[in-house]
């Protein structure tokens, strides 16, 4: 079973994402900001990370840059999932090492589609 870390400061989003990902047969771990996500990654590097952009403490893009520079941090497939939907943000995310990008709102079809494109399912 593949694992997915869901990083979002909204509990509602985490619950919805968990439900979708569990249906896609992922083992789900949650974090509510970038710093907590880094701790989860240190304990266990997930196969996939579904990542919000705007979060307190450490935002998504800072987390991604730190992750990609860390040991083993190149491995996870990172899919941004954010209300930021302009090209500038998307380009910045890709430059920082994101594999895919979801513009909220999202549903199970979009997650399945993006996870399929990146070879996760």
């Amino acid at each position: 079973m593949k694992s997915c870390l869901v990083v979002d400061d909204s509990r509602v989003v985490r619950v919805v994402a968990r439900r979708i990902l569990e249906e896609l047969r992922f083992e789900v771990v949650e974090a509510e900001d970038g710093r907590e996500a880094l701790e989860r990654c240190r304990e266990h590097m997930p196969d996939a990370i579904l990542l919000d952009w705007n979060m307190p403490v450490m935002n998504g893009i800072e987390f991604l840059r730190t992750l990609r520079a860390a040991e083993g941090g190149a491995a996870p497939v990172v899919v941004f999932c954010t209300t930021e939907r302009d090209l500038k943000h998307i380009r910045e995310a890709l430059a920082a090492g994101a594999n895919e990008y979801i513009m909220k709102p999202f549903d199970s079809d979009i997650i399945a589609d993006k996870f399929g494109q990146t070879g996760l399912i």
Partner: peptide, 20 residues
């Protein structure tokens, strides 16, 4: 629409071939 470009289109191709 945003919905349509998120069905099947890889993000790299969106960035490369589309304008917002």
């Amino acid at each position: 629409s945003q919905f349509e470009v998120q069905r099947g289109l890889p993000i790299q191709l969106l960035v490369k071939h589309f304008e917002q």
